[in-house]
Design a protein around this nucleic acid. Structure first.
Lengths: 248, 248
DNA sequence: AATACAAAAAATGAATGCAAAATGATTGAC
DNA sequence: GTCAATCATTTTGCATTCATTTTTTGTATT
């Protein structure tokens, strides 16, 4: 039987640089590596994750690996079936809806909080990102657009000055990362223009420090993304793939 | 050397009934028990949690216990110092502010979502809880008030029909449970009356399915709770203790 | 040839063992 | 008498081992 993990003899990747607080103990190292490995989509959805193989890959024994797996399961990235090993969690359409909604709630919250303490400089930085993104939009540069878009949203979360929120946000972002990426490519031209308008509204509310309003706008914005993603997956993720640039 | 754990020879409590999805494997059992044990405040803040002792207590070996500890650490309930064991996480005032704000965001989201699909029956049930709570208010029954209040908020979360949100909410609720409980006793009469008015506004918005409005009200409501809790802790948690009924 | 049963192989869950680090105590120096 | 250094004990981190459960494979029977 073929395993789900591609057999590179080399230990996966170097520990991710800017993740979050995690001690340097071997187990923590493993956790970071494994998380990135899963989030980056190196294992197909629902694919089995044989412990033995991962152990060889990471050159460690099963004990710290299993600890890491338990944590990843708690984070919702994988699921542990009793006596039947770990699988990469398969997200049902309903799961996705739920995740998007929670993300929407978190960003909405981030916006509200950001309005309480964001500085003019931070807003200026976001404005610069906005214009950069507008450039990508004009050039039809999906990849650039996606990245800058992500940066804007992360800037808002950062401006909320709430480390707990930031961590939680990162967790959820990780869970839907693959889908979210492909969801952005699902955007039809019309939706794209719409998103740009929404971003203008976001900036406007931010400038006025209108927390409650921004909260509404961000929620609606994410809700629209959700719809795009769901439709996209419904009609098959490959249909829009041709417009996607190669991923380096 | 005295340990932080009271030495009951009896294995702590029975596995919590209505917690969340967790397989019945020994490890899962342990996880549930330990989580409850910590959440219920059986270990003082910052207290050490010696593995050996817990093992004897739970009658298991260290392996599954350590797995459970890792998960609890990921959930933010305890922290693991490298080579120095586990401690119950001590929440700084800033941590509390952050946690309350995230809770506020989650409830705010729950309200918004609830407005999309809540039934008249569910609203009626919440109304009943509201009147029950009003009774507790009139009788100055803090404990009853606290419990009913909790039920109302949980009903709103349930009405959001989002299992992911519910789980996340439960997680955060667990983290601040002790503080939250005492925070409710911190309420001065004035704040209490204020909270009642806020709850009326919540119900009103809910009846009208005014999602955005409800979102604002809930956020403000939780923010006020936050303030009360912070002030309360600043002046020392014992100052209001005399009004607290005995805990069963 | 297909199905059912059985035995072997593999994988998981938990316990034990061993090395390294930390904690505490004892001893020695000033 | 106080402080510091060394040594013993405890505790943690990880590897290894043992026991079950699952999965696979081979064989026999229909």
């Amino acid at each position: 039987m073929k395993s789900a993990i591609p057999e590179t003899g080399v230990p996966i990747t170097q520990p991710a640089a800017g993740n979050d607080r995690q001690e340097a103990s071997l187990h923590g190292e493993i956790l970071l590596r494994l998380r990135d490995y899963v989030v980056e989509g190196n294992i197909p959805e629902g694919g089995r994750v044989p412990e033995r193989q991962l152990c060889e890959m990471l050159r460690i024994s099963r004990t710290p690996l299993r600890e890491a797996l338990k944590v990843l399961a708690a984070e919702g990235l994988i699921e542990l079936l009793p006596n039947r090993g770990a699988r990469v969690r398969q997200l049902s359409p309903r799961d996705l809806e739920e995740l998007f909604d929670v993300m929407a709630g978190l960003e909405s919250l981030a916006g509200r909080l950001a309005c309480e303490s964001i500085t003019d400089e931070e807003i200026a930085a976001i404005e610069r990102l906005h214009y950069e993104m507008y450039g990508h939009y004009l050039h039809r540069d999906m990849h650039g657009y996606f990245q800058t878009n992500q940066q804007i949203h992360e800037s808002i979360v950062a401006a909320a000055r709430n480390a707990t929120l930031k961590t939680t946000y990162a967790n959820f972002a990780g869970r839907i990362r693959r889908v979210r990426y492909s969801a952005n490519f699902a955007r039809k031209r019309q939706r794209w223009a719409e998103a740009m308008r929404e971003h203008e509204a976001i900036l406007d509310a931010l400038r006025r420090r209108a927390g409650s309003e921004l909260s509404d706008i961000l929620f609606a914005h994410l809700r629209n993304k959700r719809s795009a993603a769901i439709e996209h997956l419904a009609e098959g993720p490959d249909s829009a793939r041709e417009t996607a640039p190669q991923r380096s």
